[in-house]
Design a protein around this nucleic acid. Structure first.
Length: 492
RNA sequence: GGCGCUAUCGUCCAGGGGUUAGGACGUGAGAUUCUCAAUCUUAAAACCCGGGUUCGAUUCCCGGUAGCGCUACCA
């Protein structure tokens, strides 16, 4: 394909460009996912680029956290770059722009405030306090070693309109007069995000920039930079933002760990469920599908189907996860093969301090898979399989809820011990034996099973009785039932 | 303040000049089961406001309002 072909017609090269200034957050993860989906749907190339030009805020820990998050998601990329390694190149490119007369030196000291004050006072002038110097004076001061920032000389006053077609937001245009003289180089010589980003996008031959809508307005600056670089701009696609229930853009600072992907991982989200949830925020296959496998999503994914309004991630202090994310996770858990699910459960049991062998987990998994929404729920759902000693019984729970007393509960538990001593511990045998026992005691199954379930599991709500007992084994079951019975002696 | 973007149930996502405005999550009620869960049935729940255009606007246009974003030598 010739270079002159429109960017959108080439084999796509997309990039995900996080800046390592904190943990990987869900908004970034979603941007990564959309880029990945676009690349893989179109058999293109996925580039990971670390935008680490902010030396002040970059940390190694953050870098690790981002990789950790991306690895967990399990989506791959084809090439990897670091902006800091391309510093010299960026400076050369800035100088080239300067040499073309498209930028000028600004010797004004950097503002220490964030510019909010001046905005509030109505001073939104471009590059306030820095009338452009003559070239001679500029050269002289630069030669004398005075620090300066390099600013783009935005072509204002020419009636020029900057425009592009966004794949999501459509035709976008803005008067150049509305764009301020933004910085290309900081006074310490470091490139700004705008410069580094565009320079790399051009150098790496990125064809499609898929990023958050917070960059929509910045795109006009980027258009100017590409022009200065002598490169044709790629196709842009901006994604609606993820916002918190308070309406504000999801931010690490304001919303804390609930926006970190590691929070989801640690709670026991399945990566595929997490991806499924995020891709549905701002995109849909335009039919009623919601629970989708990754392949299904990839096949259905197009930028045309991305919508334009922000999506709120519905979390609260009590419940950090969007209910829909939780539901989708439960769906994905149930869709997993038992072997696979039990493998994923392992670390949660181990971390809880249980002696959980793969065999034992495999036996338990079918009993809890429909009862957990997050992987970590398994720890509570299955604790009695591992605990040597159950917490002291609550007599009130041992007594059947409907029409029963302590004496009756004792009778059930006594009789159960007898019966169980000779019953083989498989589902069908237990089913037969215990139902027969109930009948003999003149009780309904529900009544008779409650004391036994509580005795065996330590609580009223648990997985199906017979399967549970089969996994627990005769010895443990009888011991627990005896203990429960004894705990009732005091009140009978 | 300027500029830009957006506006359908509580939330997410469809729809679209004439519809009983659809699906999902969550919530309520019921069914079913040895409890819980799962499952099934069912209910409540929305087109921001005002003008146009039109025989007819929730849908198209304009304005307002609200929210968000950008307006840094952050990214």
């Amino acid at each position: 394909m010739p270079d002159s072909a429109p960017a959108s017609a080439k084999t796509p090269r997309v990039r995900f460009a996080p800046s390592p200034t904190g943990f990987l957050h869900v908004g970034s993860a979603r941007t990564f996912i959309f880029n990945w989906l676009y690349a893989r749907h179109n058999r293109g190339t996925m580039v990971l680029r670390l935008d680490d030009t902010d030396v002040e805020r970059n940390t190694e820990a953050s870098l690790q956290s981002i990789f950790e998050g991306l690895r967990w998601l399990g989506l791959d990329w084809d090439e990897e770059y670091k902006q800091s390694e391309r510093l010299a190149q960026h400076r050369r490119q800035a100088e080239a722009i300067f040499a073309k007369g498209l930028a000028y030196r600004d010797f004004t000291p950097a503002h220490t405030d964030s510019g909010e004050q001046s905005s509030a006072q109505g001073a939104w002038l471009f590059n306030p306090g820095m009338p452009e110097l003559s070239r001679e004076e500029s050269d002289r001061r630069a030669a004398s070693g005075e620090p300066f920032a390099l600013r783009y000389r935005v072509p204002r006053g020419e009636g020029r309109t900057l425009s592009f077609t966004d794949s999501v937001y459509g035709e976008q245009s803005k008067l150049a007069d509305e764009v301020e003289d933004f910085a290309l180089l900081r006074s310490d010589g470091m490139p700004t995000y705008h410069l580094a980003s565009c320079a790399d996008d051009a150098d790496l031959a990125i064809t499609h920039i898929i990023r958050g809508q917070d960059h929509l307005t910045n795109t006009f600056k980027h258009l100017l930079i590409f022009e200065g670089l002598g490169a044709s701009p790629p196709q842009f696609a901006h994604l609606p933002l993820l916002v918190a229930p308070d309406g504000a853009k999801l931010s690490k600072r304001r919303h804390g760990p609930v926006v970190s992907v590691t929070t989801y991982r640690d709670a026991g989200f399945l990566p595929r469920a997490f991806i499924n949830f995020l891709c549905l925020l701002g995109w849909s296959p335009k039919d009623d599908r919601e629970f989708m496998a990754l392949d299904e999503i990839r096949e259905a994914f197009t930028l045309e189907n991305v919508n334009r309004s922000n999506a709120v991630v519905n979390f609260t202090e009590e419940d950090p996860f969007d209910p829909k994310a939780v539901w989708l996770n439960a769906e994905h858990i149930r869709a997993l093969a038992v072997e696979e699910l039990s493998r994923r459960l392992q670390p949660f049991f181990t971390q809880a301090g249980f002696e959980a062998t793969p065999e034992k987990i495999l036996a338990i998994t079918p009993l809890i898979r429909e009862r957990i929404k997050l992987l970590r729920d398994a720890v509570f759902a299955a604790d009695f399989f591992f605990l040597k000693e159950l917490a002291p019984y609550d007599p009130a729970e041992l007594i059947p809820a409907k029409g029963g007393d302590a004496a009756m509960a004792r009778r059930v538990l006594q009789y159960a011990q007898e019966v169980l001593a000779t019953t083989s511990f498989d589902h069908d045998s237990l089913d037969q034996a215990l139902r027969a026992a109930a009948t003999r005691l003149g009780l309904k199954a529900g009544q008779a099973f409650q004391p036994i379930r509580v005795a065996v599991c330590g609580r009223k709500n648990a997985p199906p009785l017979f399967e549970t007992m089969a996994v627990l084994g005769r010895e443990t079951c009888i011991a627990r039932i005896r203990q429960a019975e004894e705990s009732l002696q005091s009140i009978v």
